[in-house]
């Protein structure tokens, strides 16, 4: 099976601190990592490839040249080849413009059986690029996938977990799935994996011109949404202080919760 895994390099938002004085974000020193769920997507692709007697796993990313580190890490896990879409023209893309560029790259790659994305990226939490990519490519999708397996009839059986239910779907290939972290445990690259990621495996960088995609469909220009403003919620002021008998304080609290629609 030939599988394409789009990945994203993200700042480790778990490492973000809020300045207690100003309430602003401290971005300094926040490390860049492979988006955690994308590692699960790579693991899912590698397992599927191993189970189905070979093929290639191609990792694809869009970002600045530094995103190479993320792609190399997934090569070290076992992906066969990496492509980075890097060009100033891609900058400022929203999810639609991102999916547009990824779709163009995937068309350029050519034949594939499956695209596996992580559920969502921790910096944006949108979960939109996967479905938008599937729409650009006009292929079926299954999001929130916790397990999958290729069946003898060529269909892909997926378990899609949403809101306390599991949908069992059969998808014709090629298709796109987005994977949950519950699906697997991503392998930690071996020493040889790390070395071959840098010395042996193909690594390519494609520009917007390489994709032949109109510039007005990618990057900032191709993004219907714009960020109007970013702000940190103001630090909370002193709220209501309740003292006294538990029965009283709880009653007062319940009134507030009811008023806020919280119970």
């Amino acid at each position: 099976m030939n599988i394409i895994v789009p990945i994203k390099q993200v700042p480790d938002t778990n490492d973000v601190r809020i300045d207690p004085e100003t309430g602003t974000l401290i971005r300094e020193g926040v490390p860049s990592i492979v988006n955690p769920e994308d590692r699960h997507a790579v693991e899912m692709a590698l397992t599927l490839k191993e189970q189905n007697g070979g093929g290639r796993v191609i990792v694809l990313s869009m970002g600045p040249p530094q995103a190479e580190a993320a792609l190399r890490e997934t090569l070290a896990m076992g992906a066969d080849e990496a492509i980075l879409l890097s060009d100033r023209a891609f900058a400022g893309a929203d999810t639609l413009a991102t999916a547009c560029a990824l779709a163009a790259a995937i068309r350029k790659i050519g034949a594939y059986d499956l695209i596996i994305c992580g559920r969502q990226a921790i910096d944006g939490d949108t979960a939109q690029v996967g479905p938008q990519l599937a729409e650009f490519l006009q292929i079926p999708q299954a999001t929130y996938v916790q397990a999958l397996q290729r069946e003898s009839d060529g269909l892909l059986r997926v378990e899609r977990a949403v809101e306390g239910e599991v949908q069992i779907l059969a998808l014709p290939l090629p298709a796109l799935v987005t994977c949950l972290k519950e699906a697997n445990h991503p392998r930690i690259p071996t020493l040889k994996g790390c070395i071959s990621a840098f010395r042996e495996k193909p690594y390519r960088v494609w520009s917007a011109a390489d994709l032949g995609v109109p510039l007005e469909q990618i990057g900032l220009k191709g993004s219907p949404t714009q960020v109007r403003r970013t702000f940190t919620p103001p630090p909370r002021g002193q709220g209501t202080v309740l003292t006294g008998d538990p029965a009283q304080t709880v009653r007062a609290l319940m009134d507030t919760l009811r008023e806020k629609g919280l119970v």
Binding site: E68, A69, R72, E73, I188, P189, L191, C194, I195, F198
Partner: peptide, 18 residues
């Protein structure tokens, strides 16, 4: 080198989790 950085990072993860 980026290769050594990656090795260091992966070993650290292995050491911390396993």
């Amino acid at each position: 080198t980026p290769e050594q950085e990656l090795i260091r990072k992966t070993v650290a993860e292995f050491a911390a989790t396993v």
